[in-house]
């Protein structure tokens, strides 16, 4: 019996590995064919072997349909197995699609599929898909499983692939770092400095012009002689008010400057009345 088995080609491989197996599943006359649209002209046809995969990957174009016809055998005799599956596996991700054969009582089975029947994930695989044939049934008969061919899916470059949206799964999300608005920037300092200097230059120009026109403060002694307190306080408190403004600019708050500003303002008002009366008296005396 064993001698007979070893004569059957389909048992060569399995027989080597599983010398003890009483019987096992296998197949005969397996033909794989790829036909173009409308069945016009067989593009590809080959015989499948049960122990070595086809040397070259089978190419499946966008409009092609792949068909495998085989006869399943149990211990060499044609028989229908319960499980006759072609598994097509994406070698990147390990995802696998199953194509069951339509098997008749006689053990003759066929399976055909096109690109449309493949899940989108397999269409986009970077490597050829690995096709494994499974023939198995209940009982103790050894099941058959072998890598039979590689499938190279050629998608139509003109037709966009169906969109695959990754379903929501809980996990780490992408990091987000807020993008801050850029800080405001000033122009080159040299330009600012140029304008600072040209503005400051107006002060000597102003004083010079006044001096040329005969401006003077020769009446200081006269004014101080007539109303010393009023003039000192008036001019001094005007300077003090500027000082308060400077403090407000540098570090005081509004409520800090209001009391001194009130005091200084009152002094300006009271002393100003006197000081300006003195100025008026000089004008009335024709000295202005």
């Amino acid at each position: 019996m064993r001698f007979l088995h070893s004569l059957l080609p389909s048992f060569l491989v399995l027989g080597a590995g599983l010398a003890q197996a009483a019987s096992s599943w296998g197949f005969d006359d397996a033909v794989i064919s790829v036909t173009g649209k409308g069945g016009a002209g067989s593009a590809f046809k080959d015989k499948l072997s049960d122990h070595v995969p086809l040397a070259k990957p089978v190419t499946l174009g966008a409009a092609d349909s792949l068909k495998i016809v085989l006869t399943a055998t149990e211990a060499g005799a044609a028989k229908r197995p319960h499980q006759a599956f072609l598994l097509v596996r994406d070698q990147d991700t390990g995802l696998e699609a199953t194509f069951p054969f339509q098997v008749k009582e006689s053990g003759k089975g066929k399976v055909d599929f096109t690109q449309k029947d493949l899940p989108i994930q397999l269409l986009t695989s970077s490597q050829p898909l690995r096709a494994t044939l499974l023939l198995a049934s209940f009982g103790s008969t050894q099941a058959f499983s072998n890598h039979v061919f590689n499938l190279d899916v050629k998608t139509d470059p003109n037709v966009p692939l169906p969109k695959y949206e990754k379903p929501l799964r809980y996990g780490k999300l992408d990091e987000i770092h807020h993008i801050f608005k850029a800080d405001p920037k000033s122009g080159p300092k040299i330009i600012s400095l140029f304008f600072v200097l040209s503005i400051l230059a107006t002060i000597p120009v102003l004083f010079g012009t006044w001096a040329y026109l005969g401006a003077n403060i020769s009446h200081v002694s006269k004014a101080l002689g007539t109303a010393p307190i009023a003039h000192t306080l008036f001019f001094g408190s005007i300077l003090a008010m500027e000082g308060i403004f400077f403090l407000y600019y540098t570090n005081w708050t509004l409520f800090q400057i209001l009391p001194p500003a009130g005091v200084v303002g009152t002094i300006i008002f009271l002393s100003g009345t006197k000081a300006l009366s003195e100025v008026q008296s000089r004008r009335l005396a024709g000295e202005r």
């Binding site: 002060i203 102003l206 005969g214 020769s218 009446h219 005007i238």
Partner: peptide, 16 residues
């Protein structure tokens, strides 16, 4: 500066 100087002029300038 101009304002303080002007106040001084206004108060104490002697006519030429």
């Amino acid at each position: 500066t101009g304002w303080v100087a002007f106040v001084a002029l206004w108060l104490w300038s002697k006519p030429v």
